[in-house]
Design a protein around this nucleic acid. Structure first.
Lengths: 214, 214
DNA sequence: GACAAATACGAACGTTCGTACTATTCTGCG
DNA sequence: CGCAGAATAGTACGAACGTTCGTATTTGTC
């Protein structure tokens, strides 16, 4: 019943050589991510995206099969970029606090990235879809749960490295870090609050210091 | 040019006796606030609101004159309720930390209120409109700035009462409190995180304790 | 260079959006 | 009660939405 619009010849082999369709699809998703950043997931429309990419509505549409599939593809694209920009560079840092801190700093930089003029699409999408059950919400929630687990793991390693006190609760740290990231996003975008980054680093350091080994 | 659709006979006198139109207008706004909570400001549509209130689209529309005016009215309604539910009860508490803490606790209760099944409309609206300049964004930003100033004032009073250290930065405290409130909203709504309230109070207490007088 | 498949286009669909007009019903005061 | 004005309903509109379909163009392979 469902038409395999963009079926590959070798669907199980991820080839580095991209076909024409895959290349335009990537270009569409890049542009879509930018639009979602500014207008939100709900604000992403086939027509505006087609205009932004210089394609026809139907030509663009054929790449995804439905608007829902488009949204899921955009989110997957965003999460992949998040991994490359935020997670992977942090993994190059030493285990423990340096890595945890890098995760946070990269996270802030990501939300302020020039390629995302409207801020993090996942944070924006979370506010839009938190009351709309379905695959989009599930993908958002899954991504953020994964990120929280990643933060918690880094906290545990900092405890192992004796950089944080043994009785530190990793989940509490991840919770509070998430809050700081959210308020940076909120204050900077809505209020144009310039001191957000500095205040966030202050909050982070005092959070770490409070759980430092005595 | 602009039609005074819902003009009062005595526009400068706020009478406790409400005319029929004012009563239905209030009822519309109550329902609208509920819908905005779930679907967001962008998701509030004249058609669905008319259906939810049992009115015709045109009959409802006449109360506001345009959709933008409707949105502004809904936000004003929400901010007024916020003042009644969050701010005013806190003012009954003693100056300083008790009042500041009450503000926070009431704030959390507000975002979880049964009358707002989709969470705080202002937090949701902030994410939607942070990249859309205009009167709606201005009203949102104004309301949140006012709230931040209120929090800062309460912190200053706590310093005066010698409950917080003299070198405490009120803006930093308000910033971090806002972050905790945001992450509660986020984790509870998107992730169904049940421990959010408990974790938030833990974070708040440790924030206060860190700035306690030594 | 031919030929099948992949890709893109243009036009049209049914629906819903916000809004404008006109007509009808209701409310409250003299 | 009666009547002016407020309040609500009805109808219609142009635009934009997601989607479908048939056709044209482009791509990659033999």
């Amino acid at each position: 019943m469902a038409v395999q619009t963009a079926a590959r010849v070798h669907p199980n082999r991820a080839s580095p050589v991209k076909t024409k369709g895959e290349r335009t699809r990537d270009a569409i998703l890049d542009e879509a991510l930018r639009l979602v950043s500014k207008a939100g997931l709900d604000g992403l429309t086939i027509g505006t995206l087609a205009e932004a990419t210089g394609m026809s509505k139907s030509g663009l549409f054929a790449h995804f099969g439905s608007r829902d599939e488009l949204l899921l593809a955009v989110l997957a694209h965003g999460q992949a970029q998040f991994g490359e920009v935020v997670f992977q560079p942090a993994m190059a840092k030493p285990r423990g606090l340096p890595r945890l801190r890098a995760m946070f700093v990269n996270w802030l930089a990501w939300t302020e990235s020039a390629e995302l003029p409207g801020g993090c699409p996942m944070i924006g999408g979370a506010a839009e879809f938190d009351d709309k059950p379905g695959p989009v919400r599930d993908m958002l929630a899954g991504g953020q749960r994964t990120w929280i687990e990643t933060l918690k793991r880094a906290v545990r390693q900092a405890i192992e490295e004796r950089q944080l006190a043994a009785d530190t609760d990793p989940e509490q740290i991840a919770f509070e870090m998430f809050g700081i990231a959210l308020v940076v996003h909120h204050h900077r975008r809505l209020l144009g609050y310039r001191k957000a980054r500095e205040r966030a680093l202050t909050a982070l350091d005092s959070l770490f210091q409070r759980h430092a080994v005595s």
